[in-house]
Design a protein around this nucleic acid. Sequence first.
DNA 1: GTCTATAGAACGATAGAC
DNA 2: GTCTATCGTTCTATAGAC
Lengths: 194, 194
Amino acid sequence: MTAGSKRTKKQAILDTALQLFVSQGFHGTSTATIAREAGVATGTLFHHFPSKEQLLEQLFLSVKQEFADAIQSAVNKRGDLKKDAEQLWFAALSWAIDNPLKQAFFQLYSMSPTVEQSVRDQAMHSILGFIGALIRQGQAQGLLADFPQDLMQDNCHGQYLAATRYFADHPERWQQEHERSASFALFWNAMAVR
Amino acid sequence: MTAGSKRTKKQAILDTALQLFVSQGFHGTSTATIAREAGVATGTLFHHFPSKEQLLEQLFLSVKQEFADAIQSAVNKRGDLKKDAEQLWFAALSWAIDNPLKQAFFQLYSMSPTVEQSVRDQAMHSILGFIGALIRQGQAQGLLADFPQDLMQDNCHGQYLAATRYFADHPERWQQEHERSASFALFWNAMAVR
DNA sequence: GTCTATAGAACGATAGAC
DNA sequence: GTCTATCGTTCTATAGAC
């Protein structure tokens, strides 16, 4: 076993819960099933996670954090906003392509009342505050249209979810340069000044 | 009681199921609770719907059909594509504003595995075929960018979901002309030729 | 930390009276 | 069509041995 690849029982529970919550939904998945599929006893599951709700919560926050780390480390701001936006767009899309289960988890739980509003807000702000700053910068430079801040941010999120669903449904198209560049063009043109 | 306002028990079950499936999720809502809140017995629920799954299915298709009827009747194609798109955009947004519960239901179940893929496809094609035709028309006229058809369609859907979420979260902004026109500008500019 | 065994409640669906 | 009553199952969570 290589260094860092040790899968603890706790991690096995999180991995299995991710898969089952995506395919069957939260209430549609029993803790007994998660434990069985993960190869642990129900008592072990409740040793690591005090309740089923807290298992979902920890899973949600860890996946969001993983996403935020992945895209922020991929971008080195150099002043050219369009280039930065392009790097960010492709880093975010690449992460989604490489982590289809986690992307599906976002689609299902990012706006579901099953996850507490406060938990979703916490995850959103720690990630999208960073996006909001980029948009304000673009407006100050006269590159981006002067639309309401929140509307532009929500629109970014919506276009991202649509693009990831598109490339997840048609993986071969992700290999084509004109498909990738078209997805960025839709994203950028929506906000760019004419 | 005015004409047409007669709420049958079957309709009461559908209305209550819509509300509870949105607030608690499908598996998080028991048939016993739906029946109690609707003011009927559990036996009555299973008289009208052979199973809980089929209740969800009938609800899903009826809400989608209602949406399709609402936006198609609001648009009278006159050859000016941008005007047609604008009418369609605001008809779709208005419907979402006026039916927040049904809009939330879409957000949660339009891409959830809880609803059978075949049922979701059936709903999608009977509605979005119509949108696809409009996009092809715009490309033929040189008004819309020549990006892949499916990508543009998915992008439309994503921007629509983002906009409805935005105005649902901030209802007062829907009253402001500059907010409404900004939402359409983001939508149109994404696809328009430069 | 991990297991087995089980408590106690809630579940989907059915039967049969009216 | 609608009701009450209930069957057999499955659920989350805990207790206690190792």
